[in-house]
Amino acid sequence: MFEQTISEDEAGQRIDKLARRLLAEVPLSGIFKMIRTKRIRVNGKRTQNDYLLQAGDVVEFRVVQPGPSGVPLPPKPRVHKLPEVPILYEDDSVLAVDKPGGMAVHPGSGIKGGTLVDWARHYLQVDEEQKEFKPSPAHRLDRETSGVILVAKKRKAMVRLTEIFTEGAAHKRYLALVKGRMPRPKGTIDLPLAEHQQTARSRAERGVNMQPAVTHFRVLASGAGVSLLECTIETGRTHQIRRHLAAIGHPVAGDSRYGDFPFNREVAKGWGLDRQFLHARRLELEHPVTGNPLVVQAPLPRELAQVLHAAGIAWTLPKDSDQGEKA
């Protein structure tokens, strides 16, 4: 048995949501059964699945924990070598960083450590054994994409940021260097994309699930057979910008999945580009706690600026506005 005392930040969430996070190995049906049979109690009393926790509530979990009784579990090993991650903005609720290209946001298949999750929790000195909410990235960037990403430091900030990103209320701007010269100075790609995570069984039963996807672009500069674009998206499909630009014949330079492979070899050899040229340069949204406008910008990485110079593009990232939260 163990207990969890609800903090101010933990308050307001449903008891079943808390239980699912703390008992990740238990299926939802098992969580409901534990609540129904009083193996999960609040303040010593029976509760309901939809009970909203209050600050100061004591939640009892009458379950068997792994490890010898009374002996604490050994701490999870930390990743000792973490890449440098520039901090762009920080307050009590959120942390905005400039993720380097090549750094995964979350652990996954073949990714054992050195993720942005590892870095953020190390920087914020999080105890990995604590049962309260742990700071986590509120959205994603591809591993090879650099730029602005937000980390929620508190649960309430994460809840609101999830709503903002799901509603499409966050305004993102990306920089992409693409193959060829664009036929017009700006345009819109309105092209449905196949659901990236659809299972084989689902495809066999219902066919490919096509999802609406809209990307806007404008040409910032042109060089030796390439164009520098600023892209904005109305939808957040997986690899959307990369897939859309490849679909119109202007793949992102260095894109190892959707790109033009002979072209990638040329720019790698001639300009030293060793990753895809896609950078999340600006993020504008409502602060998840104060509601004030929040603007965060990331400078163009040095390795990408050197590629522009090699391509004959004399362009620098403008300072659209001051960075940070606006009162």
Rank of each mutant, 00 (worst) to 15 (best):
residue 167 E to S: 14
residue 160 R to K: 14
residue 156 K to Y: 03
residue 86 P to E: 04
residue 110 G to C: 11
residue 195 E to M: 14
residue 115 T to G: 08
residue 142 D to A: 05
residue 153 K to A: 07
residue 181 R to Y: 09
residue 144 E to Y: 01
residue 128 E to G: 13
residue 123 Y to S: 09
residue 141 L to M: 08
residue 176 A to P: 11
residue 78 R to K: 15
residue 160 R to I: 01
residue 134 K to N: 06
residue 88 L to S: 00
residue 161 L to S: 06
residue 179 K to Q: 13
residue 193 L to H: 08
residue 95 L to P: 01
residue 145 T to Y: 02
residue 183 P to K: 01
residue 104 A to K: 08
residue 152 A to T: 10
residue 128 E to W: 11
residue 184 R to T: 14
residue 79 V to C: 14
residue 199 T to K: 12
residue 104 A to H: 10
residue 140 R to M: 06
residue 76 K to H: 13
residue 119 W to F: 06
residue 192 P to I: 07
residue 114 G to W: 08
residue 155 R to I: 00
residue 75 P to G: 13
residue 160 R to S: 10
residue 144 E to H: 11
residue 107 P to G: 00
residue 156 K to I: 02
residue 168 G to W: 09
residue 196 H to A: 14
residue 110 G to T: 05
residue 117 V to S: 02
residue 125 Q to I: 05
residue 127 D to N: 10
residue 124 L to W: 09
residue 196 H to M: 08
residue 163 E to V: 07
residue 180 G to C: 03
residue 172 K to V: 05
residue 98 D to P: 02
residue 113 G to F: 02
residue 180 G to D: 02
residue 85 V to Q: 06
residue 129 E to D: 15
residue 117 V to A: 02
residue 87 I to H: 04
residue 186 K to L: 12
residue 133 F to I: 10
residue 159 V to A: 14
residue 93 S to D: 15
residue 128 E to M: 12
residue 133 F to A: 11
residue 126 V to I: 12
residue 113 G to S: 13
residue 163 E to C: 02
residue 79 V to Q: 10
residue 81 K to I: 11
residue 108 G to T: 03
residue 132 E to H: 15
residue 143 R to V: 13
residue 101 G to N: 12
residue 112 K to I: 06
residue 85 V to L: 12
residue 130 Q to F: 03
residue 108 G to C: 11
residue 118 D to V: 02
residue 90 E to A: 10
residue 162 T to P: 00
residue 145 T to F: 11
residue 114 G to K: 09
residue 132 E to K: 12
residue 78 R to A: 15
residue 151 V to F: 11
residue 154 K to L: 14
residue 188 T to D: 03
residue 151 V to H: 10
residue 74 P to Q: 10
residue 174 Y to Q: 11
residue 134 K to P: 00
residue 124 L to Q: 10
residue 96 A to L: 00
residue 107 P to F: 09
residue 190 D to P: 01
residue 127 D to E: 14
residue 194 A to S: 11
residue 137 P to T: 04
residue 104 A to Q: 04
residue 81 K to Y: 13
residue 127 D to F: 05
residue 175 L to A: 10
residue 132 E to P: 00
residue 162 T to V: 05
residue 150 L to G: 03
residue 122 H to I: 01
residue 93 S to W: 13
residue 125 Q to K: 13
residue 130 Q to E: 14
residue 119 W to N: 04
